[in-house]
Simulated assay, not measured.
Amino acid sequence: MLLTMKIFSFLLLILGLTAFVPKPKLTNVKLGSGLTVGVPAGFMPLPDDGIAVKYPSPRKPLAVYSDPSGRVDYSVAVRPTTFESMDYGVLLKIYKSSIQRLYSKVDFLKEDIRTVNGRDFIYFEFVSTVTDTRRGSQLAPIKKYQAVQYAIEGQQLYVFTFVAPAEEQAKWQPTAQAVMNTIALK
C-alpha cells in the first residue's frame, strides 16, 4: 500500500511538472483548398527565389517557412502519386528505405502510421548524418534532426518536413511534433 502511494505521488508530481511546460506557439495557415497547417511563431515564408536556392528541384515545395536564423525550416510539398492511403503499410517501408539511401547514416527515433485530425499519416522522426567521403576531405559531417509526415489525398502525395540542426534537437523537437499534430487535410 505504501509503495502504491509513493508511485501515485510520483506520477502526480511528474504530471504536474509537465503541465507547466509551455506549448509551442503556432499560427494556422491555409495553404489551399482543404489544407491548413500550424506554422511556428516567428517563422516567415520563404520567397520563391529563396525556395529555389534552398530547395533546387524541378518541383518546388508548395510552401517553405524558416526561422529568423534560416537554420530551421518547415516545408510542405505536393507530388503526384498512384498509391492510395490503403498502401500506407507498404509505403512506410519504401519511404524508410528511401530516407536511408539519402544520408550516410540515419538514426530513427520514431516511425509509425498515425492519425492526426481524423486522417492517417506516415510519420518518421530521425537524425540524419551526411559525411563527405571524398579522399582527403576534412569537412565535418552535417547532422540534422527531422520530422517528416506523408499523406495521400486523391492522386496527390503531401509531404510535411521539419528540419533543424541536430545539436538543437531538444529545442525544436516539441515544435516539430506540435506542427505535425496540427495538419488538417480534407
Rank of each mutant, 00 (worst) to 15 (best):
V130E: 11
P68K: 10
M5I: 14
E167I: 05
V148F: 05
R101L: 06
G154M: 00
Y150T: 03
W172I: 01
Q138T: 11
D73E: 12
T4C: 05
V159I: 08
Q177V: 14
I142Q: 14
T36M: 10
G50N: 10
P58R: 09
A166G: 05
S75H: 06
V76E: 03
N181E: 11
T133I: 11
K23C: 00
I113R: 09
A151W: 03
A176E: 03
A170T: 10
Q169G: 10
K96H: 08
F20D: 00
S85K: 15
K6G: 07
L12I: 07
S69W: 15
V21N: 02
Y123A: 08
L185I: 13
R134D: 01
E84M: 06
S66Q: 13
F108H: 06
N28G: 00
K54H: 08
K105P: 15
V179Q: 02
V78T: 15
D87F: 01
E168V: 03
K25M: 10
A140L: 12
I7F: 14
L12P: 13
D87V: 07
Y65S: 02
F83V: 10
V72A: 02
D107G: 05
Q177F: 08
K60N: 04
L15R: 10
K110F: 09
V130D: 14
T82N: 13
G89N: 07
V127P: 15
R119G: 00
K54A: 14
A77P: 11
V64M: 06
Y158N: 02
Q146G: 01
L109Q: 07
M1A: 14
Y123Q: 09
T81L: 03
L91S: 11
S98Q: 15
G42H: 14
D67G: 03
Y103W: 14
P22M: 07
F121R: 05
R59M: 14
T129Q: 11
G89K: 10
R119A: 00
T131W: 09
A178W: 03
Q173R: 09
S98N: 13
K93V: 07
I122D: 05
Y88A: 07
L91T: 03
I14H: 05
R135L: 11
A52D: 03
D67R: 00
L3D: 05
L26T: 02
R79L: 14
S97W: 06
S137Y: 04
L35Q: 01
E111M: 10
A140K: 15
V29M: 10
P47G: 04
L102V: 00
N117K: 14
M5K: 10
P141L: 14
P58Y: 11
P45A: 05
G89M: 02
I51K: 04
L15D: 01
L3E: 09
